[in-house]
Design a protein around this nucleic acid. Sequence first.
DNA 1: AGATTTTCCGTGCACGTGCACGTTTCCTTT
DNA 2: AAAGGAAACGTGCACGTGCACGGAAAATCT
Lengths: 339, 339
Amino acid sequence: MATIKEIAELSGVSRGTVDRVLNNRGSVSSKTAEKVLEIARALDYKPNRAGLTLAAQKKRLKLGVILFGNSNPFFDEVMKGVRYQEERLAGYNCSVLVRQISYDASQQIAAIEELLSQEVHGIVLAPYNAPVITEKINSLYDMGIPVVTVNTDIDHSRRIAYVGSNYFLSGETAGGLMGLMTRGEIQAGIVLGSQQVLCHTDRVAGFRNCIEKKYPHIHVAATIQNQDDEVESFHVTQTLLQNHPEINALYFAAGGVYGGCKAVIALHREHTITIITHDRVDTTRCFVLDGLISATICQQPFLQGSQSLDILFNYLTAGELPEKERNYVAADIRIAENI
Amino acid sequence: MATIKEIAELSGVSRGTVDRVLNNRGSVSSKTAEKVLEIARALDYKPNRAGLTLAAQKKRLKLGVILFGNSNPFFDEVMKGVRYQEERLAGYNCSVLVRQISYDASQQIAAIEELLSQEVHGIVLAPYNAPVITEKINSLYDMGIPVVTVNTDIDHSRRIAYVGSNYFLSGETAGGLMGLMTRGEIQAGIVLGSQQVLCHTDRVAGFRNCIEKKYPHIHVAATIQNQDDEVESFHVTQTLLQNHPEINALYFAAGGVYGGCKAVIALHREHTITIITHDRVDTTRCFVLDGLISATICQQPFLQGSQSLDILFNYLTAGELPEKERNYVAADIRIAENI
DNA sequence: AGATTTTCCGTGCACGTGCACGTTTCCTTT
DNA sequence: AAAGGAAACGTGCACGTGCACGGAAAATCT
């Protein structure tokens, strides 16, 4: 592995000059710059990560993480991934500040400001989808504070990378599973949080796309919204099942799975309905284990937490961006045996 | 983050002494050692990874990797993970030597010897399951050459860690999927490579365990062996289906999936048989996409390749062992939509 | 031509660790 | 008591990088 020192010796200049050329800080004649670059290319120079990190940690790195929910089971799992990575990064003299807030634009702005006052060097953000947040991300970029979006992406924002699901694809996967796990005429009910939430509608679109193309035996009887709330979910699901006795399959495209399942049980429809859900949380794990939920499609929250921090850290210490700016986690299918 | 220098200053000794205490190289009075340890604990000292790596790479690290198969699709994917990690480790002045050999004990021994002559500092090994290999791993350990087993574990050997599947659990997952994806009376055929291969028999045991406990509608009509060979697989599967016209499900617990599927197609049984397989390879991906194979359970070969090297590297540069010595990858269920 | 600015480049230190080498202290032996 | 040796500890360098500082050469101005 070539080092800066080697390049300096071979091109007859000092290490400082090589440094200036490679990181184009200017103040180098084009002639020498040319020669240095040529030799660096010939030696296939790649900066040494240990040296890079060592130099970068002169000023102790501080990273900020902003997630939703004070006891949101999904983000709790993301948090575990964050904590795991935090422990690793501690070995690089890098600290992590985590803020969990409720789903609200102004709170998110406030959290960002607070992290800025703590002088963080970059932020991992589960973004609230609003123009004001997009603007904030862009202004952070201009200030030199890179942002990695996690779980939800913000289109047309200058975040340096996204880590999370491809919601359309995971909806398709849900449709595929339901197709494989059912026979005969199927009347499916779709439960989502809200038509305003892009993640939910993307999943539903994927689900419908799949069954329309591949599984004509499945029809969508009705689509309802539960606002991601367990109590609301119980009621709307109960009403749905009462109004539609023909329903023999349910697709939960969002949260509120526990409440929905409780409604199914309350109406004694456990053994007549095939249920597919997303995410894996402690409250609903038992339903997967006992077979009420046939399968659940997870989005690897742990991986999202750890990977997003990792990308941010690499960017700040080595200036490296990931190959793809959208880092999709695979749709992770879980049934009773591998949950 | 506390550093050795800080500890030295606080305990009134030099950095060298602190180093001796923390890495117990001796030559330190028990009194000072006690004091240093106390202060180190109070400051929650953890060695800085960048400094550690930088110091370790004075002698350029060389890692060896021994996998099977010259064009084995599964190990090709493991190889991609190895290559990915190799690229990352290159930034730490660490090189990786890869050897792909056929499934044979003496060839494996020879490959190990060859890597030793290249002066590797540690080895990632997809081990041949034989006492002579166990002994070899142990003698490597005594020589100070750590071994990480990948894909298959060797019980009672002194490998420092294992990265790979839990085969029994993945067999159970296959059983669970078949249970969920079938209705009515099911006569299942089981195809494995050989009764001598522990991975295969573990999977079959998991499969049987699951359907016996949870899915009594599934019966095992017959179990056959295909020696992991495509041509052999075609013939034995064809014979099986001819002798057992009642078979309406197939579980491929090992390789030879392509040959087996071809037999199903040759006998025009595509639409009457539910097929569950393991692993995802280019030759059979199309069968998953067009629905001949309902689902395939993968063992995350890429992750196995990258993680095993990572563990070995961390051990050699920081002396760190993973929390668990058996690092199981999750059973990764794939259907047409998420393959 | 001399003074001043600009361009260009070299040197030294810091980051945290491991390790070889030196130095001091203390104990044992003759 | 002097000599020898072992135990205990300090010092300096190396690893690779970024960056601040300063010096020399070239270009511009008075």
